[in-house]
Amino acid sequence: MPSSSPKILVDADACPVKEEARRVAERVGLVIVFVSNGGIRPSRDPMVLVVIVPSGADAADDWIVEHAAPGDIVLTADIPLASRAIDKGCHVLGFTGRPFTPASIGMALAMRGLKQHLRETGAIAGHNPGFRPADRSAFLGALDTLARKAKSLAGK
């Protein structure tokens, strides 16, 4: 694999689409790195790496940001991590297939802050909508398109 090929970095602790991400990485020919506090089995596939970080707030996020390179793909539902990855020049995709971009991340951060404030004041309940089959399907399509695009851009 050329060193210029992007890799897929997965914020894996609460990721509901690990298997889908692995299949897309395999199909497109990209290395995928699952970063977690534990609970993920190692793989014998040299294109599938598992990194176990120490327990602690943001340990996986910090590892991902430290090891990400421009053009890599970061998969996460964590908006602050998405922002940090965008700042490094990464492509960022949420687990529902929603892309985080330089144009959209500011609003995503603002909405996160507003919802946190509303939860703290009791104005809204503290839960997110459940993950649906349609989210899985949207994620698969979006990651496949993004992975092919990132690989193509890296080859230029």
Rank of each mutant, 00 (worst) to 15 (best):
V35Q: 02
V35A: 06
S36E: 05
S36G: 04
N37V: 11
N37Y: 02
N37L: 07
I40D: 05
R41W: 15
R41G: 11
P42H: 03
S43P: 09
M47R: 09
V48K: 00
V50S: 00
V51P: 02
V51A: 04
P54E: 13
G56C: 10
G56L: 10
A57I: 12
D58R: 07
D58G: 10
A59F: 09
A60Y: 03
D61H: 14
D61I: 14
D62A: 15
I64F: 04
I64S: 00
A68W: 04
A68E: 07
A68D: 03
A68V: 04
P70V: 01
P70N: 03
P70G: 05
G71E: 10
I73N: 06
I73V: 11
I73F: 10
V74D: 03
V74A: 03
L75F: 05
T76L: 00
T76P: 13
T76E: 06
A77K: 15
P80N: 14
A82H: 01
A82M: 12
S83G: 13
S83K: 11
R84D: 14
A85R: 01
I86H: 01
D87W: 05
K88W: 01
K88C: 09
G89W: 13
G89S: 11
G89L: 14
H91I: 08
V92I: 08
L93W: 02
L93Y: 03
T96K: 09
T96M: 15
G97I: 06
G97P: 07
R98W: 07
R98V: 12
P99F: 12
P99R: 13
P99S: 14
P99Y: 14
P99T: 12
F100H: 06
F100A: 12
F100N: 02
T101F: 08
T101K: 09
T101L: 12
P102V: 12
A103E: 10
A103H: 09
S104K: 09
I105K: 02
I105V: 12
G106Y: 13
G106F: 12
A108W: 00
A108K: 03
L109W: 03
L109K: 06
A110F: 04
R112I: 09
G113K: 12
G113T: 06
L114A: 15
K115M: 12
H117L: 15
R119C: 06
E120M: 07
T121Q: 13
G122M: 06
I124K: 08
A125M: 08
A125H: 06
A125W: 03
A125K: 11
G126P: 01
G126S: 14
G126Y: 00
H127F: 04
N128P: 05
N128L: 02
P129D: 02
P129C: 00
P129I: 02
G130W: 05
G130H: 01
G130D: 04
G130K: 11
G130F: 00
P133L: 12
A134N: 12
D135V: 09
D135R: 01
R136N: 05
R136G: 03
S137M: 10
A138D: 14
F139M: 08
L140I: 07
L140P: 01
L140V: 14
L140D: 02
G141R: 07
G141D: 00
A142Q: 07
L143C: 07
T145R: 11
L146A: 01
L146H: 07
A147E: 05
A147V: 06
